[in-house]
């Protein structure tokens, strides 16, 4: 393999990872504010369909993305309303919505299956595209990739460097304390759950309009669950989450590559990699397994290793707060 091939593969990893990155950022925002949106798998499917259909019918990519964002936001709003107002189990509502999104997309998408449709054109960024190695990998892509990369930085900056981000995190960590200091916890949770849901919706459109163009039943099935696991792996940080998404994209690219070199091994073995990876990384970050491993690591490495591997979820994730 020569270097151009390698660069092409790395570029395709970035493209594969882009919608996941968007979805992970959205879910990270929502969970940091204390709301688990477990509906992600169904919401990605339905918004992928909505984005594709809207763009197909109107001819406008922008409207496609907006329609997808609206679907994602609606799902998130239902989860938020059910848990914040009606005090029902977030996990249960999210799960049912995940199922429902799947069947709705199958039902409604029947007549749009495998139609040719619009797609986000690739656009190389002037100047940046000419940087050796990095240029072809990151800057000869399309707007979805640039949006994803920018989103990681903006989300990180917002969460950890702004006052609003601090309030968001306080709503997820110590809602009582935040409330007693004048933060409107419930309002914030609604806001960020819906914002996060809208981003998940855009991730759906990113699939159907850029990365995996078009629609077929079960188009993105499974990606929502993987994104949820990446949020945990990412320790609820958009940057680590993006790395996780890239890692996942890399295993997919690697699988394709290995498939070419070892055709006698069944395809399913490679398809199994992401799920095995999911179990392994969750084992690593859970702490139950990592703690004894860490204890054996050299003392100098222990601290950086721990901060790399372990992360606690927002302390009040999924818990209601009585404001009245």
């Amino acid at each position: 393999m020569d270097s151009t091939q390698l660069i092409a593969i790395l570029g395709s990893i970035v493209l594969q990872a882009a919608p996941l990155i968007i979805a992970v950022c959205g879910e990270t925002i929502s969970e940091r504010a204390g709301v688990i949106n477990l509906s992600m798998d169904g919401s990605l499917l339905l918004s992928a369909l909505a984005g594709f259909v809207a763009a197909l019918l109107t001819g406008s990519l922008l409207l496609g993305f907006l329609a997808a964002a609206a679907v994602g936001a609606l799902f998130a709003a239902i989860v938020a309303f059910g848990s914040l107002h009606l005090r029902q189990n977030q996990v249960a509502i999210g799960f049912v919505l995940a199922m429902l999104g799947d069947s709705l997309s199958a039902f409604l998408g029947q007549s749009y299956t495998r139609l040719p449709g619009p797609s986000v054109p690739s656009w190389h960024i002037p100047l940046l595209k000419d940087i050796p190695v990095l240029g072809p990998i990151f800057f000869r892509q399309d707007a979805v990739v640039y949006f994803a990369l920018l989103l990681v930085l903006v989300t990180w900056w917002f969460l950890f460097r702004t006052r609003a981000g601090l309030e968001l995190r306080s709503a997820g960590e110590r809602p009582e304390a935040a409330f007693s200091r004048g933060v409107a916890v419930r309002k914030l949770r609604y806001l960020y759950a819906i914002l996060g849901g809208a981003l998940v919706g855009m991730a759906g459109a990113a699939y159907s309009l850029s990365v995996k163009i078009g629609w077929a039943e079960g188009h993105t099935r499974g990606m929502g669950w993987i994104a949820l696991a990446i949020v945990i792996f990412g320790g609820w940080s958009p940057v680590r989450g993006a790395i996780g998404a890239l890692l996942f994209g890399a295993t997919k690219a690697l699988a394709t590559l290995l498939q070419r070199s070892f055709p006698q091994v069944a395809l399913v073995a490679f398809n199994a990699i992401p799920w095995l990876l999911m179990i392994v990384v969750l084992l690593l970050v859970s702490g139950k397994l990592a703690a004894p491993l860490l204890a054996r690591a050299p003392a100098a490495l222990r601290r950086p290793l721990r901060s790399l591997l372990q992360a606690a979820p927002p302390a009040a994730l999924g818990q209601p707060l009585d404001e009245s």
């Binding site: 477990l38 073995a269 095995l276 179990i279 969750l282 139950k288």
Partner: peptide, 28 residues
């Protein structure tokens, strides 16, 4: 219980592995 992996995620991964295992058996 031993690994601290939430049963939702462990279960989902195992679901997909089971599906892939079926496909492997049928094709192989």
């Amino acid at each position: 219980t031993r690994g601290g992996v939430h049963e939702i995620f462990g279960g989902l991964a195992l679901n997909n592995l089971a599906i892939l295992f079926t496909n492997y058996l049928i094709a192989g």
